[in-house]
């Protein structure tokens, strides 16, 4: 390995740094440029608010570059679906072949930018409701370039704060002092975001959530479901016979608690049953309430140590929350 850099490469790097300035990162091994990295946005003049998609282009130079093709990776695509990414990838492959022997990074940036400009609207789904973005939907782009229906993001942020406050309330005083304050985070990448929940929550729910055709179980699906259910209960019966089922003989509180009122009624009935002879989860027709049927609230086995890891689970079931102000 010589440290002599091909002139074509050093010229290209110099040009990239001159034009893109802070927007390009050149990673070097010793003095030799190794990886060129830049985030590509659609052309929207300088109006970054109108940029709804982006992708990070990473070009790893080979020792023989540009006489051999560099390795090109697209990372952190935002607002781009798989189909578009596949299109860009195949265009990149063609471009690399066409440009063998000459510097190619500018060409790649240009190619990606054209694609992004053409498709500068978030594609794919809102990960919160799993519906797409359609005309008339009110959506928001976070600082990290993730898109959500404003309505959905508001719901997430409101429950995030509520969960935080509930967790905070049950901490002992001395621990409350060490808790870091609540921060809104992006559901996808957990980047800290700052959003105005009040204005988000005024947005209407996603169009498709209202207009989508109602779901009906096709016959085909019915068969699949029945098959699977059958397979599951057979497996369970078999494992129970071998003593391989966790809750056998356990009569403590339900490890999973179902909190709808209807379930609670069933629960009461179930607790009248024989205390130790439980294994309900097997009974195929009863499975919906299986985890409840072995519950005996207030049974001697309901030790307090048990509650620790599951504390978060029943947060919703609390009858009333004491209102508290800011969790500092």
């Amino acid at each position: 390995m010589s440290a002599v850099v091909d002139e074509r490469v050093s010229d290209e790097i110099e040009a990239l740094e001159a034009i893109l300035m802070d927007d390009v990162v050149i990673k070097r091994v010793g003095d030799v440029p190794d990886i060129i990295e830049t985030v590509v946005h659609p052309s929207t003049g300088d109006d970054t608010d109108q940029q709804f998609v982006c992708v990070t282009l990473e070009v790893k130079l080979t020792p023989e570059y540009p006489d051999t093709s560099p390795d090109v990776v697209l990372r952190n695509p935002r607002g781009l679906d798989d189909a578009l990414l596949a299109t860009i990838h195949s265009q990149i492959r063609n471009k690399l072949n066409d440009c063998l022997g000459q510097p190619v990074v500018f060409e790649l940036i240009e190619l990606i930018r054209e694609n992004l400009t053409e498709r500068n609207l978030p594609s794919g789904q809102c990960v919160i409701c799993l519906f797409g973005f359609t005309a008339g939907d009110v959506f928001i782009k976070t600082q990290c370039y993730h898109h959500f229906h404003s309505h959905c993001l508001a719901t997430h942020l409101i429950s995030g704060l509520r969960n935080y406050q509930e967790e905070y309330e049950i901490l002992p005083n001395w621990q409350q002092m060490n808790v870091s304050p609540y921060q809104q985070s992006c559901p996808v990448c957990r980047t800290i975001v700052t959003c105005d929940v009040e204005s988000l929550r005024k947005a209407p729910p996603p169009q498709e959530s209202i207009t989508a055709a109602p779901f009906c179980v096709t016959d085909e699906l019915k068969v699949t479901i029945a098959d699977l259910q059958h397979k599951m209960s057979a497996l369970l019966a078999q494992q129970r016979a071998k003593g391989g089922v966790v809750s056998t003989g356990y009569t403590g509180p339900p490890p999973l608690t179902i909190t709808t009122p209807a379930d609670n009624q069933n629960n009461v009935v179930a607790t009248n049953g024989p205390p130790a002879a439980k294994p309900e989860p097997a009974a195929p027709r009863q499975n919906g309430n299986a985890s409840n049927s072995n519950s005996s609230p207030g049974s001697p086995n309901g030790k307090s140590g048990y509650r620790g890891p599951y504390r978060g689970f029943n947060r919703r079931g609390k009858p009333g929350r004491r209102g508290r102000g800011n969790a500092r």
Partner: peptide, 15 residues
């Protein structure tokens, strides 16, 4: 594999 229970669509059997 995951399949909803017959009686409760929020309860899934999983393998």
């Amino acid at each position: 594999s995951a399949v909803p229970s017959e009686t409760n669509a929020r309860y899934f059997h999983v393998i």
